[in-house]
Deep mutational scan, measured.
Amino acid sequence: EPEARKIVEKLINNGLSPEDVKRWAEKNNNPEVKKAAEEYQKR
């Protein structure tokens, strides 16, 4: 999901860690963003 990846990169560029992004995604019920954050961590 390229859109989710863009969101993850934007949040990380704004100073969030991938863990923060995953928590944000869970709080906002956004499994695509959570998955993208996990993939981002593996890179």
Rank of each mutant, 00 (worst) to 15 (best):
E1I: 13
E1Y: 13
E1C: 13
E1Q: 13
P2S: 15
E3M: 10
E3Y: 08
E3G: 09
E3N: 12
E3I: 10
A4R: 02
A4Y: 08
A4C: 05
R5Q: 11
R5N: 09
R5V: 11
R5I: 12
K6C: 14
K6E: 12
K6N: 09
I7P: 01
I7F: 10
I7D: 00
I7Q: 05
E9F: 08
E9D: 06
K10C: 14
K10Y: 15
K10G: 09
K10Q: 14
K10R: 14
L11D: 00
L11I: 02
L11S: 01
L11Y: 05
I12Q: 02
I12N: 01
I12P: 01
I12H: 03
N13A: 15
N13I: 09
N13P: 02
N13Q: 14
N13W: 09
N13C: 12
N14G: 12
N14M: 15
N14S: 15
N14F: 14
N14E: 14
G15P: 01
G15E: 05
G15D: 02
G15H: 04
L16N: 04
L16A: 07
L16E: 03
L16T: 03
L16V: 06
S17E: 04
P18S: 08
E19R: 05
E19C: 08
E19T: 06
D20E: 13
D20R: 04
V21F: 02
V21K: 01
K22F: 11
K22P: 00
R23V: 09
R23N: 10
R23A: 10
R23C: 10
R23Y: 08
W24E: 00
W24I: 01
W24K: 00
A25T: 01
A25I: 02
E26C: 09
E26Q: 06
E26K: 04
E26S: 04
N28Y: 11
N28W: 11
N28G: 03
N28M: 12
N28P: 01
N29S: 08
N30F: 15
N30S: 10
N30G: 01
N30R: 15
P31G: 06
P31I: 11
P31A: 10
P31Q: 10
P31D: 10
P31F: 10
E32N: 08
E32G: 10
E32A: 14
V33C: 03
V33L: 08
V33A: 04
V33Y: 03
V33H: 02
K34E: 06
K34A: 14
K34D: 03
K34R: 12
K34T: 07
K35S: 07
K35A: 11
A36R: 03
A36M: 11
A37L: 13
A37H: 02
A37C: 06
A37K: 00
E38Q: 07
E39W: 08
Y40H: 04
Y40D: 00
Y40Q: 02
Y40S: 01
Q41C: 12
Q41H: 07
Q41K: 10
Q41E: 12
K42C: 11
K42T: 09
K42Q: 12
R43A: 12
